[in-house]
């Protein structure tokens, strides 16, 4: 979802680098001719990400810098050259004015924030130079597939302390209604019990055309 506007050849900025997982998918998206510049405040984290990119063969596509983008903004050298900027910062609104300067006309900014207040503050800041400001929450629900009719719907919680005493399976005599469709297929899907209920909000915005 995040990388949907990033295509081969793009010049992309990111801050912060974090674990480098978004960086990786951005690098794969801009390959073979694009470039990703990613910045993190933490020297250690930047170094470790740099090592990872060496190991995964992405270092020709990714440059990792140590920089407090919230405080200093992005390096001036990228001014007006950038296709997309990705922010994953605690106070993204501090970096938005600089991000705006970096972007080409019609360039896209994407900011990821876990809390709605960050989204509110960022959207407020975005309104002065950006348009098409849209916020999404993206969730992924996964399903388990099990075989059988009415089987094993209980009792694999991992505790043996007494699931329902009544474990028998009873079936009413199958009627012979001529209309009836077949009762159950042998593979049935059901949502997995625990899901990641929230990771964050994605706010997209497009630089206004001047």
């Amino acid at each position: 979802m995040k990388a949907v506007k990033v295509v081969p050849g793009c010049l992309v900025l990111e801050s912060g680098t974090g674990s480098g997982s978004l960086t990786t998918s951005l690098a794969r998206a801009v390959a073979p001719t694009g470039q990703v510049y990613t910045f993190d405040f933490h020297e250690q984290r930047a170094a470790s990400a740099r090592e990872d990119f060496e190991r995964t063969g992405l270092s020709s596509l990714v440059t990792v810098g140590v920089r407090d983008v919230q405080g200093e903004g992005f390096p001036e050298e990228f001014c007006g050259l950038v296709d997309s900027v990705f922010l994953d910062l605690p106070q993204p609104w501090l970096a938005i004015p600089s991000a705006g300067k970096m972007l080409k006309q019609d360039g896209i900014l994407c900011s990821f924030s876990p809390c709605i207040e960050q989204v509110q503050h960022s959207s407020e800041t975005l309104r002065s130079n950006f348009t098409d400001i849209r916020t999404f929450e993206v969730l992924l629900r996964t399903y388990e597939v099990r075989e059988g009719k009415m089987d094993s719907s209980q009792g694999d919680e991992g505790d043996s302390l007494g699931s329902l005493p009544c474990k028998r399976r009873q079936r009413l005599s199958e009627g012979s209604n001529q209309h009836e469709t077949s009762s159950s297929p042998t593979a049935m899907a059901k949502p997995s019990g625990e899901a990641r209920g929230h990771t964050g909000y994605l706010t997209f915005a497009r630089l206004k055309c001047f």
Binding site: Q120, I133, R141, Y143, V145, Y201, T203
Partner: peptide, 28 residues
């Protein structure tokens, strides 16, 4: 679900998963 089940039985694939993406847009 049927397809996944058959792929499992036939040992034709690993890492099988059915996902459903959810997208909620917000008015901010």
């Amino acid at each position: 679900a049927t397809c996944m089940h058959n792929l499992q039985l036939g040992k034709m694939a690993i890492g099988l998963q059915i996902s459903e993406p959810w997208l909620r847009e917000y008015q901010v």
